[in-house]
C-alpha cells in the first residue's frame, strides 16, 4: 500500500475512461467514460491526501467537489441527450457533429 500503487490504479481508471470517452458512439456511453475518469480523480485525491498532507482537509473537500461534479455531469448529460433525441432522434455522437470544424 504505497502512494505510487494508489496513483497507478487511479491513472489506470483515468486512461480507461479516456478510452471510453473517445471511442464510444453512444452519447450515454461517452458519459460513462467521463464518470470513470472522475472516479480515478477521486482515488488520486484520496491517496494524495492520505500519503502527503493528511493534516489538512483539502483532499476530502476535493472529493466532495468531484462527487458533485459527477452528479452534475450525469444530470446535464442526460438532459442534453434527451433534448437532442427529442429534436432529431439522435443518440450517437457521429450524428451530432454540427459543430465539427
Amino acid at each position: 500500500m504505497t502512494l505510487q500503487l494508489f496513483l497507478l490504479a487511479a491513472a489506470g481508471l483515468f486512461a480507461i475512461g479516456l478510452y471510453g470517452a473517445l471511442s464510444q458512439q453512444s452519447i450515454v456511453m461517452l458519459m460513462m467514460g467521463l464518470e470513470l475518469m472522475l472516479n480515478g480523480v477521486i482515488l488520486a485525491a484520496a491517496a494524495l491526501w492520505f500519503f502527503l498532507a493528511p493534516d489538512g482537509t483539502d483532499g476530502p473537500v476535493l472529493i466532495v467537489v468531484v462527487v458533485t461534479a459527477m452528479a452534475i455531469e450525469m444530470a446535464a448529460g442526460f438532459a442534453v441527450a434527451t433534448a437532442i433525441y427529442r429534436a432529431r432522434q439522435v443518440d450517437m455522437t457521429d450524428a451530432a457533429a454540427d459543430l465539427k470544424g
Binding site: 502512494l3 505510487q4 496513483l7 497507478l8 491513472a11 489506470g12 483515468f14 486512461a15 480507461i16 479516456l18 478510452y19 473517445l22 471511442s23 492520505f50 500519503f51 502527503l52 498532507a53 493528511p54 493534516d55 489538512g56
Partner: peptide
C-alpha cells in the same frame, strides 16, 4: 482512442514513478 489512452497512462505512470514525492507531513 486506444493509442491515446495507453499513451496517457504511460505518461501518468512515468510521472508517478519518477516523481520524488515529498514525505508525509502531519497526521490525520
Amino acid at each position: 482512442s486506444m493509442a491515446i489512452a495507453v499513451g496517457t497512462f504511460a505518461v501518468l505512470a512515468a510521472g508517478i514513478l519518477l516523481t520524488d514525492w515529498p514525505t508525509r507531513r502531519g497526521a490525520p
